[in-house]
């Protein structure tokens, strides 16, 4: 997965240094920075490179992913990893057209674009208008596995995953409920 974690102090393997990123970036709403071929967090904690999609499109997809399945304790990079799966030649046209359509919906609501709407409820209202489109359904369905099947997010939900390697829960709290 080509979401890069950038160390606070400097460079990473792709040469997307914090300074370089910010120098090359243009603002995309207030949420992300978008540069030539990449989207990054405003704090430059991570960046995702794009191949088939425009980086502006990727920025919208990341925000859209969070608005579809908003978990305030899950960081943007996990949403970025999930939607990165659509950055391919087969889906590019559908995704580009879908995001363009979403931005048009935003403009009809009086915003410059999807990312310009600051409140989640405004963005969700736009998504409700397109939720029956193949574009929306493709992104939503992809997130069901793309987001929730990332083992790194399971601890946010308290989910422990497999226990066989630790001998199950027979000695580790299968019946430890103490408040009933």
């Amino acid at each position: 997965m080509t979401v890069t974690h950038i160390s606070p102090s400097g460079s990473d393997v792709r040469g997307l240094t914090r300074r370089g990123l910010l120098a090359r970036a243009m603002a995309a709403g207030a949420t992300f920075v978008v540069g030539s071929g990449f989207v990054a967090a405003r704090d430059a904690a991570w960046a995702v490179e794009t191949a088939a999609l425009k980086p502006e499109t990727m920025a919208v997809l990341i925000q859209m992913a969070r608005d579809i399945y908003p978990h305030d304790r899950i960081a943007d990079r996990f949403y970025a990893i999930a939607v990165k799966a659509h950055d391919n030649p087969e889906q590019a046209q559908m995704i580009e057209e879908g995001v363009a359509g979403l931005n048009l919906v935003a403009q009809a609501q009086g915003f410059d674009g999807y990312l310009a709407a600051g409140w989640e409820k405004d963005r969700v209202a736009m998504l409700r208008l397109i939720e029956h489109t193949p574009f929306f359904q493709t992104v939503r369905a992809g997130l069901v596995t793309g987001l929730y099947n990332q083992k790194e997010v399971w601890p946010v939900f308290g989910y422990e995953g497999e226990s066989f390697s630790q001998g199950g829960y027979i000695e580790r709290g299968f019946n430890d409920i103490d408040w009933l």
Partner: peptide, 19 residues
């Protein structure tokens, strides 16, 4: 588990009611 709960709790559902 979380992966299947996300898939089966309310298929097609989304938004804060879901999350």
């Amino acid at each position: 588990g979380i992966p299947f709960m996300a898939a089966f709790m309310d298929p097609g559902g989304w938004g804060r009611e879901f999350t």
